[in-house]
Simulated scan of single mutants.
Amino acid sequence: MSSKVTPESEDWRARLLSTPEQIDHVLAQVKRVAVIGIKPKDVGGPAHTVPAYMQQVGYDIVPVPVYYPEVTEILGAPVHRSLATIDPPADMVQLFRRSEDVPKHIDEILAAEPSVVWMQLGIRNDEAAERFARAGMWVVQDRCTYVELKRAKR
């Protein structure tokens, strides 16, 4: 995957990914994933099981929970409270947040400059997606990484 492009050199809409081939390509390129909204194991749900599966198949998961201030580690990795503290930075930011909460994270994600922003199944914010795409990021909305990885047999 190429790095950042300017909106003038490429239509930003081309950075909104939806086909299985595009998604497979992204998932093959990404190695380190910051998960905003990840949940601890005792809370469970998709915001824990999906990143756990991703870790199991080889992704480096960086937990960025929104709640649970007492938690210092998730999936054996230290918790970060901001994308700015992640070093080395993540290739992809994965969002487990309600669609209406996505705007709260736009500036932080833009500052972190990941190659990919992935909004999990049921999460869609077209305004945020446009901002990320115009900044040169690849964007996936309303898709489950677990489902996509299983489909690709990973």
Results as ranks from 00 to 15, higher is better:
P20T: 01
P20C: 05
E21D: 14
E21F: 00
Q22D: 14
D24L: 08
D24A: 13
H25K: 13
H25T: 14
L27H: 05
Q29T: 04
V30L: 07
K31R: 12
R32E: 07
R32Y: 11
R32D: 06
V33F: 05
V33E: 10
V35H: 09
I36A: 00
I36E: 06
I36Q: 02
G37H: 03
K39S: 14
K39D: 09
K39Q: 08
P40E: 02
K41H: 09
V43E: 15
V43L: 08
G44C: 02
G44N: 05
G44H: 02
G45C: 06
P46W: 09
T49M: 04
V50E: 12
P51F: 01
P51G: 05
A52F: 04
M54F: 09
Q55C: 00
Q56Y: 04
V57S: 00
Y59M: 10
Y59I: 14
Y59E: 14
I61R: 01
V62R: 11
V62F: 06
P63V: 10
V64A: 04
P65V: 06
V66G: 12
Y67C: 05
Y67L: 12
Y67H: 07
Y68F: 15
E70H: 12
E70D: 12
V71L: 11
V71C: 09
T72R: 15
T72A: 13
I74K: 00
G76Y: 11
A77G: 01
A77P: 01
A77Y: 00
P78F: 11
V79W: 06
H80I: 03
R81N: 07
R81D: 07
L83I: 08
A84Y: 06
I86H: 01
I86T: 04
P89K: 15
A90Y: 12
A90T: 10
D91P: 00
Q94M: 13
L95N: 08
F96Y: 15
F96C: 10
R97V: 15
R98H: 12
S99R: 03
E100A: 04
D101M: 01
